[in-house]
């Protein structure tokens, strides 16, 4: 198997309580890999570990052979991992296009000096980045809203804006934290379709999601967590028939 995203015995504790315990998994390049589990299973914590927002208490994480441990989020973003958030972290003080342009940050190099003097190089770069950003807005069906203030967008469009912004970093791996939460059925369908199109671009996706229909429809592989621990891993069919998984979900009386 190609080296892509690998986690080896990672543990994260908060004040002595383990949110993730001794977890190992690996994902394949080009796949849609989902992490599921009852509430409090540690899914978002896992994403926060993978993106450098938290540091693991112990264990190793590698992406394409490079260690992720000790790397701050902006460095991880440069390695080619981007993400969306459970509660959208949209820059509400900016327009839709501007939000997406921030996603292009890594692909520009003009600094304080050339920006402050508005040097031709900086202006040329801005035009190039704007083109990139617009392409991603078109991809996510938001181009008609480019100049709209983002705090005026409905929730569903905020969710898609997060995707457009994350895609602008040109990630190799996109982590999506509950992309369908708060969406209605038709919006969820669109989101599923968007995930498939992202996969077709050659971008691997890692998904945390409660909507099982969506998960089963788009995933190539699944990882099930329970109280921060590995419970099972496999294809959607394998997981659906796994007695341990059924017990964990039924036992919780959830979903």
């Amino acid at each position: 198997m190609d080296l892509f995203l690998e986690a080896e015995n990672i543990t994260k504790t908060f004040g002595g309580v383990a949110a993730i315990f001794n977890l190992s998994f690996a994902t394949r390049k080009g796949s849609v890999y989902s992490v599921i589990g009852p509430n409090g299973a540690g899914k978002t914590t896992l994403f926060n570990l993978l993106t450098g927002i938290y540091q693991p208490t112990s264990g190793n994480m590698r992406f394409e052979g490079k260690s992720l441990v000790g790397q701050p989020p902006h460095k991880i973003s440069k390695l080619g991992i981007s993400r969306t958030f459970q509660t959208p972290q949209i820059f509400l003080n900016m327009t839709v296009l501007e939000n997406t342009l921030v996603g292009c940050h890594n692909h520009g190099s003009s600094g304080f000096f050339s920006g402050a003097l508005s040097l031709p190089s900086s202006r040329k770069e801005a035009a190039r980045l704007e083109e990139q950003a617009m392409e991603n807005l078109v991809f996510c069906g938001l181009d008609h809203l480019a100049n709209r203030e983002s705090d005026a967008l409905p929730y569903g469009e905020l969710k898609r804006l997060e995707v457009a912004r994350a895609l602008s970093t040109k990630p190799k791996l996109l982590l999506m934290d509950e992309p369908a939460a708060g969406l209605n059925d038709s919006e969820t369908g669109e989101m599923g379709e968007l995930i498939r199109r992202i996969q077709k671009l050659g971008i691997s996706v890692m998904l945390v999601e409660h909507n099982m229909a969506l998960v089963m429809a788009v995933s190539d592989g699944l990882l099930v967590l329970n109280y921060g621990e590995y419970l099972a891993e496999g294809t959607p069919e394998q997981i659906q028939n796994n007695p341990k998984v059924i017990e964990a979900y039924l036992g919780m009386g959830d979903d």
Binding site: I53, I90, F91, V102, H105, S110, S122
Partner: peptide
């Protein structure tokens, strides 16, 4: 400029800005 966008992003959401590099 590119820097200005990043500055405003920091105001909007620090985690969001970090994740964008």
């Amino acid at each position: 400029s590119r820097i200005g966008l990043a500055l405003r992003a920091v105001h909007g959401s620090e985690v969001g800005a970090q994740m964008m590099g």
